[in-house]
Amino acid sequence: MLAKRIIPCLDVKEGRVVKGTHFLDLRDAGDPVELAKLYNRDGADELVFLDITASPEGRGTLSRLVRSVATELDIPFTVGGGIRTQEDVRDVLRNGADKTSLNTAAVEHPELITEISDVFGAQCTVVAIDARRRFEEREDRITVQTPQGPCWFEVYTYGGRKATGMDALEWAARAEELGAGELLVTSMDRDGTKRGFDNLLYGAMSRIVGVPVVASGGAGEPRHFLEAFTEGKADAALAASVFHYGNYPVPVVKEYLRSQGVEVRK
């Protein structure tokens, strides 16, 4: 049986790993190469590297740093942030990435998803979606009931700076149709809060799409990962600060999941 995946995420700014809350108030979390080594050794199932300065400031991804990180890994490696063209994808793959994640560029040019998927394969084409709850009822949006009332999920681009008005659930389905092989979905409401994943978002998404969904945003303790898999029906759960600051290392989270009957890689 397929194991559930635990994925540490390196948000990289100016060569350092940083972590914020609700995408703001960034603080330093260490050296990307050192953290990559640690997670590889600790039994992480994959690693995600997001160049979070790339999109807003229009810079390319940091090829050399990507290469240094990739050299340390013998697990799958996804690189995102500022990827806008086929050439950008080729560059990160040449430097050791296995998958690339598209976010802002995919929203602005959805045909890019198909292009990348056709050239490099769906297995390499991750669409990252940053979503935030909007508490209003609209007939033209997929609405979810929450304890705080009905809401839909709005897509944000440019590292959470720009609201698009798009429905994240509809966008997820469309991204799959266009050729995405996986969706990395971050809840901006939960990002950095350690309150747990937004499982209403992932649960709704799992009913709509057929490709694997990676839940991201809000992990604070091992129980949250369990909930992402049971309530959120996610295929993988991604986290940053809970791993970076050593609160719950990857082996501790995996041991807990195993004790709860979740299949994870040893």
Binding site: M1, L2, A3, R5, D45, A122, Q123, G181, E182, G210, V211, P212, D235, A236, R265
Partner: peptide, 10 residues
């Protein structure tokens, strides 16, 4: 079941 078969298996 989901296709592609993607992830860790035994």
């Amino acid at each position: 079941f989901k296709v592609p078969h993607m992830g860790w298996n035994t």
